Every structure is written in structure tokens, then in C-alpha cells.
Amino acid sequence: MAKFPTLLSALLIASLLTTAVLADDRTPIGDAVHDLPIFDAHIHYKEPAWDAYPVESVIEMMDRNGVAMGLVSSTPDEGTIMLWEYAPNRIIPELRPYHGNAGSSNWTKATDMEAYLADRLTRYPHQGIGEFHIHRLDTSDEPLFRSVIKMARARDIYLHVHSSTDPIRWLYSLDSKVKIIWAHAGLGDSATAVYELMNNYPDLLADTSLRENEILGWGRGLDPDWEKVIFAFPDRLMVGSDTWVNGQWDDYDEIIQSNRAWLAQLPRDIAEQIAFRNAERVFGRQISMDQIGTR
């Protein structure tokens, strides 16, 4: 009679162990990563690219790499609108402030900036303001940033901010409800700093453009500090290419494959989140391989 409860206990323990293993399954998705659609959360279609890479060639590159959709900002904004008008099913436009003599280092000082942004946001369906740079935090720009935040809040859209950690903190101090995508996850900041900032601001999103080699440990394998970021915030990261110069368009295939290389080292559910599901949630779109070959 003693054997029955012993056997039952053994079966119960085995079941619990199996459940625990499944709950902590970190089996990498591996080659199946190539079946996932990619949302490229950091594309620019700047004027020097217009002749070298006509709109149809950009969509062809996206098709070739399984990039179903992309978040596009451009200098000037006309580039974004050209791509969006050509392939509205594939492009989510966002409004970059840069135009005329207003560039990354002086855009906050342009006298017409508020009027320019308001006009473009009224005329086109931009889903974000940015990507814009805050190279050096100047608190005298507070009135402009309060206005920019107000425009974004009124439309329920994101600011796409290229900066170090301090400007992100400052923007949240102006309005704790502002919605931010942190471009390049800071770029010059360490993975440890990225973890700290994202941990402190639970609504902060980030794109990992230009970070793929760091994440891959420069060929040594998934970097431990980046692995900590990825597993802590899988629902708040997106990949990107940052086609800021034509050389990035030249290397677009390699850039997307580098992103797939680090996604391949993640469990399927996390790889899917970062590859496209976060963007589905953030922008309210359906993203799938069925979009490849469409406009």
C-alpha cells in the first residue's frame, strides 16, 4: 500500500519540474527567426537618397529582408511623405523637425519651429515627432519642448528622441505622461545605464538601431549586460537600421541580418515581441509577412 502514494508523489514532482522548465524555457528561436516579419523602427529617407534610392527600391529592399513595415522620419519631411504615399501599407510616418537651415544642432532655436510642426502635423498623419537630437541640454528650450509635448499629447503620439539619459529625465520632468521612443537606446550610454533608465521610467520605449554589434558582443555572443536589458524589457524594445546616410542604405541587407542574428539567440516569444509585436501594440497596426510585396 505504501507504493501508491510514493508513485503519485513522484508523478507530481515530475509534473511540477516539467512545468517549471516550460515556464523558464529560453530555447533560442534560431533559424526560425527568418520567418518573422521585422518592424524597422528607425528609417530615414533623406534628400541625398532620393536619386540614389528611388522609393520603389527602398520597398524592394524591405521586401528582400522581410521588413514588413517601418517608422520613417526624414530631412526634410518631404522624403517621408514620398515613401508613405508610395507605400502607405508599409510606412508609418513621423515628423522630423529638420528643414531649411534648421538641423540637429540648432533646430530648437528656429523661429518658425512651432508653426512648422503644427502645420505638418495637421497636413499629414504623422505618428511621432522625431527623430530629433538633444546634443546638449539647454533648459532655456523649455517653452518649445512644452509646446512639442503638448502637440504630441493632443495627438497621442510619441517623441522619438536621440539623446543621452539626462534629456530623457528632463522631458519626463516636464510631463510625466509624455510618450518617448529613445533612439538607439542612448547610443553612447552603456547597457547598464540603459537598464537603469528603463527601469526608472516604465513607459519608456527604445529602438536599438546602431547597437546590434554591441548586443552581439562584437561577435563573441549575446552580451551579458544587453541580455539583462532584453530579458527585463522585452515589451519595450524595437530594432532599427538608421539609414542616416546612403552608406546605411548600401548596407541595409547586412544591417537587418545583424539584427536577426541577435534576435535568433532569444526565445521565440521575446524575439517576436522585439521584431514586430511591440510595434503592433504601439502603433495599432497588424504586421505580418503577408505585407511583403505589397504597398
Rank of each mutant, 00 (worst) to 15 (best):
S104H: 03
S288M: 10
M1Y: 05
A118E: 12
N200S: 15
T19N: 05
I43H: 11
R96F: 00
A232T: 11
E60F: 00
I215V: 12
M238V: 05
P48L: 12
M151N: 06
T80P: 03
L171Q: 07
G188V: 03
H133G: 06
D175V: 07
F231A: 04
E272W: 01
A279P: 03
Y172G: 01
R277Q: 11
D51H: 06
W262L: 07
F276E: 13
A183K: 10
V245F: 10
E94L: 08
E142F: 05
A261Q: 11
M62Q: 11
D112I: 00
D223P: 00
E94W: 07
M82K: 15
L83E: 08
N259K: 03
E272D: 10
M198I: 07
S57G: 03
L174Y: 06
S209K: 09
E272A: 14
S73F: 02
D203K: 15
E60S: 13
V161D: 05
V148F: 00
P202M: 11
D253T: 09
E272T: 10
L11P: 02
L159N: 07
D235G: 13
I215L: 09
L17D: 01
R281E: 12
R260I: 04
L144R: 13
D203M: 11
N278F: 06
N246S: 05
L216S: 15
T243P: 00
A14P: 03
T80C: 03
D119L: 05
L83T: 02
S9Q: 13
T19Y: 15
G293L: 06
L263S: 10
M198F: 09
H133V: 06
P37S: 03
W218K: 14
G100P: 04
S164T: 14
Y98V: 01
M289N: 13
R295S: 12
S105H: 07
R277E: 12
E131I: 00
I13A: 14
L71T: 02
G186V: 10
F233E: 10
R146V: 01
M82C: 01
S241A: 15
D253R: 10
R285Q: 15
M62K: 09
L174F: 08
P267E: 05
